[in-house]
Design a binder for these strands. Structure first.
Lengths: 114, 114
DNA sequence: CGGAATCCCTAGGGATACTG
DNA sequence: CAGTATCCCTAGGGATTCCG
């Protein structure tokens, strides 16, 4: 692994993770394998359908997520990590574990300053 | 490691990484150990001094980065990952490696569609 | 159920100039 | 060198309504 000071490829790739809901959605899909639109909608308190639709579309365009439509009525659409998206799993796990630990760390700091 | 559908702690901690420049700055600090303000300024093409100042301040408040001021003239200020910030290193490495691979993946896809 | 279409708003961030 | 201080703007999102 190389670390040059001006390694701008980082930012290029990382753009696919930018946005308020990208990582939370990916973490849900990593945890649950396959989720329907409404599953994700419920799993992400605060998201709107518009943002969910839009973010899923972007993730699909970046080849991180696969979308599967069942031609039934009422509609049924499933989302899951694509093959390429699964390469993100170690990263998502690291993010997930650190997020929890860091959240606790901040809470502890906060507590000390009450 | 637990994965509950509504694990909102993720988002809490992850907030500290939100923003256009947080992760790029952290990756620079992970790679170089210690950097001065102007080092970071040069290492991050496109950032403004305002954003650099502001983002470093937020990272410091989240206890991810330490700031060391030398009382000399001209001013000298050094930044490095804090002890707690170093817990992010595995995550940053994962992000860094994936960012490069993903960037290549997208470029390849793009190429095929020319 | 899984969206699409509108309208709307503000805060995140850019550009520039100045300072101890 | 390492920031402040201002002004400014738009695009990323929020809320709501409608649709097959």
């Amino acid at each position: 692994m190389s670390f040059e000071p001006l390694d701008c490829h980082i930012d290029d790739g990382l753009k696919s993770l930018l946005g308020k809901w990208k990582i939370p959605i990916l973490i849900q899909l990593r945890a649950q394998q396959v989720l329907r639109f409404s599953d994700l909608y419920r799993a992400l308190p605060g998201i709107t359908k518009k943002m969910l639709t839009q973010t899923l579309k972007e993730l699909e365009e970046d080849d991180l997520v696969n979308r599967k439509v069942y031609p039934v009525v009422p509609p049924k659409v499933e989302y899951q990590l694509s093959a390429h998206g699964q390469e993100l799993i170690p990263t998502l796990d690291a993010l997930h574990a650190w997020g929890i630990a860091h959240s606790a760390h901040l809470a502890h700091k906060q507590h000390r300053h009450d």
